[in-house]
């Protein structure tokens, strides 16, 4: 897996510089400490901030802008940002309505955001995204991982904040989106961190890793590659089993690429998912297909379902203008 690099350790900041130059009308990159914020922050609304390891682009910096995040805090590749970065981002965008931190449930992210919240002089709330059904939740584990469903939570909470909802309401809506969102992924190969000399997940041709995370970390089991319909069926089984039968409530169907799978194949998976959900009498009300929460160059994809209430539909449809997601007036 050859890469476009100058110095491997500079990959994150050089990528961010290019991102900020390209979207200079919308975002600003602060290099020390490192965070990305809206060019024109609105301190009269709840500040919505997310962050985490880099390597998942466009998550999170790509979702900074009107209707979504106020700031994003990128760490090194697959490694949490530090509290001073998170604190500086909060100070740069937050006003009296307070800050909502949207955190993916990884121990590093949880601890660093926790330390930042302890240092921040202002009101904060934190929600933990844990949509991955591949890892069993139990009292013994740190709980589930936050994966592609993070985008849904950022969109819903960001829209609510943009409409002037207070901190409690934004946090409650984010929690509701989390409770209604489930994801499972599959990888057909690994990915290589720029500073590493080997891929994270080493797989033979013809194998797949079911339940893979977004860091190329192993999932539930390694099995021989199957037909796309069978793979999607297994992913949807796991998601639906955990989510519960939606009944009359329609779902958002989100097919997310991990960075190394062509759009043609993502749409092929989407087509399969539509047929399978139709057979199971699950109604699809909104769709999203593309590379939104990636794992560097990993070939693979995840399927996310969110049970959409009417208020959530309104927030999902609300205008959004970010480098990575854009619709509405």
């Amino acid at each position: 897996m050859s890469k476009f690099l100058n110095e491997p350790r500079d990959a994150v900041v050089e990528g961010l510089r290019g991102f900020a130059r390209c979207h200079a009308d919308e975002v600003v990159l602060n290099e020390r400490p490192r965070f990305v914020r809206r060019r024109n922050p609105n301190r009269n609304k709840v500040g919505v901030i997310s962050g985490g390891g880099s390597g998942h682009e466009p998550l999170h910096a790509g979702y900074v802008g009107f209707g979504m995040l106020d700031a994003a805090v990128p760490g090194e590749v697959f490694s949490s940002p530090s509290p001073d970065q998170i604190l500086a981002a909060a100070q740069a965008v937050a006003g009296s309505p307070g800050v909502l931190f949207i955190v993916k449930n990884y121990s590093g992210d949880v601890m660093n955001f926790e330390m930042a919240a302890e240092m921040f002089d202002g009101e904060t709330r934190r929600v933990l995204v844990e949509d991955d059904v591949a890892v069993e939740n139990s009292t013994y584990t740190v709980g589930r991982r936050g994966v592609a469903g993070t985008l849904v939570v950022e969109k819903i909470a960001g829209a609510a904040a943009e409409q002037g909802a207070d901190l409690e309401t934004c946090a409650r809506l984010a929690e509701e989106a989390i409770a209604r969102t489930r994801t499972m992924g599959v990888a057909l190969g690994g990915c290589r961190v720029p500073t590493a000399d080997r891929p994270n997940l080493e797989m033979a041709p013809g194998e797949m890793e079911l339940g893979v995370g977004i860091h190329g970390e192993p999932g539930r089991r390694r099995v021989p590659l199957q037909k796309a319909d069978a793979i999607v069926s297994e992913l949807l089984d796991a998601v639906l089993q955990d989510l519960g039968t939606p009944g009359d409530e329609p779902v958002l169907l989100f097919v997310n690429g991990f960075g190394g799978t062509p759009l043609m194949e993502l749409y092929l998976l989407y087509d399969a998912a539509c047929r399978i959900l139709d057979e199971r009498k699950v109604k699809i009300c909104r769709s999203l297909v593309g590379n939104y929460v990636t794992s560097l160059e990993m070939p693979g994809a995840s399927v996310t379902l969110t049970r959409m209430s009417d208020p959530m539909l309104t927030l999902w449809d609300a205008p959004v203008r970010t480098p990575g997601l854009r619709w509405g007036g």
């Binding site: 400490p33 090194e76 509290p83 590093g108 660093n112 926790e114």
Partner: peptide
């Protein structure tokens, strides 16, 4: 250590 490491081992 916290600011230079990030991740989980930094805060710990």
């Amino acid at each position: 250590v916290v600011t230079s490491v990030g991740g989980a081992s930094g805060p710990l």
